[in-house]
Design a binder for these strands. Sequence first.
RNA 1: GGGUAGGUACCGAAGUGGUCAAACGGGGCAGACUGUAAAUCUGCUGGCUUACGCCUACGAAGGUUCGAAUCCUUCCCUGCCCA
Length: 396
Amino acid sequence: MFEVLATDPASKARRGRLTTAHGVVETPVFMPVGTQGAVKTLHPDELRLLGTEIVLGNTYHLWLRPGEDVIRLLGGLHAFCAWDRPILTDSGGFQVWSLARIRKINEEGVKFQNHLDGTPMLLSPEKSMEIQAALGSDIAMLFDECPPYPCERDYAEQSTALTTRWAERCKSWHAERAGEFFPRPGERQPATTKPTGQNGITVKRQLLFGIVQGSTYADLREQSARDLSALDFDGYAIGGVSVGEPEAEMFRAIEHSEPFLPPHKPRYAMGLGTPPQMLEMIARGVDMFDCVHPTRSARHGLAFTPDGPIHIKNAEFEKDPAPLTGDCHPHLAPFSRAYLRHLYKAGEILALRLLSFHNLDFYLRLMRGAREAIEAGTFSDFRAAFCERYQTNRVP
RNA sequence: GGGUAGGUACCGAAGUGGUCAAACGGGGCAGACUGUAAAUCUGCUGGCUUACGCCUACGAAGGUUCGAAUCCUUCCCUGCCCA
């Protein structure tokens, strides 16, 4: 399922290949976020044009609307949103943390009122697994409890233990029942489009990833990583990051978890990060990322460039004839900064689409660059050069 | 020509004696955004000043008053109605 193809001599960076039911994912990889079954503003053709290998969907949001039954009836999430490449679904644990107003966590699961109409609901490990199986994602995330930052030691300890117990329940349910949903009875084998490479491996089941918690406590991170490793998941995420903690804590969360995860399984840093952060994470042994930053920031007028992000709405670009970057994607190359600024300020939807496309291109290209650098054994130079330019040469 | 309603900051629009450099929108300028309740949110927006503060300002000019965007006089301009 996951092969490590090359490693960087000067860091923990790995070049890998993850095989799922809907195709191969080359790592390190960035996964655009498509919470409600859509990467906001973009057509699947555009995602393919970008070379997107895998996208995210969200259990919580799709459960509430339109409901997993609807999606199952329409042929599963891939068919529903016309995306034939891999999909990873997040379990809903994060949403329970981030938006459910009134929530009560107990051993069984989380009781809360949903954000749409306040209906009382219960999300449990089994329910999350069931929804994800019904959606038919290639990778399901286990249902965890994402503690806030900062987090008291006592709470973190209990929360981490709970996540581990839930992990066992997720695994049991998944092992016993996911097959009823996935692969879907009668579903024809997906016409897998393998973005790069072919490895002859076929996967006919939904993969399941564990999520390491432990907040900012090194020993809890270690314990969590060890406990989850013992459960033998297909991959391991590091959770409880991107919840408002300082960047240093984010890196420490990785450093405290990674050594205790099996080296032959993919590692996924949930919800991260900025371009330099991702390279730092790769150097610490992370293989997979997802983040709303490139797409949300795009909708707010931020465009990524090798010299750092720029606010396209700023007056300095009013008459700037240059494209966003010197080596723009051909899809974006015809457009000047002045035009993009105009579109944004005029409230034209096209601005949001073009900037989303551009930012994802920037992220995906950064990952391709990292992969090539790891293969070439030059990742450390690549990382240093990128970060140096990104952070110091802010040029309009 | 007569009547009538008005002229407030970049625009629209409140305010009708002191707490007004003037509410609120828009526009403009800047910032934030990390497992997406986000095409969202925040700050600034007369001049000088780090600030205290000072200066200039509610069509124009005079006046009343301790004090005027607010009251009085005249003038200029605009909308509408009548001739």
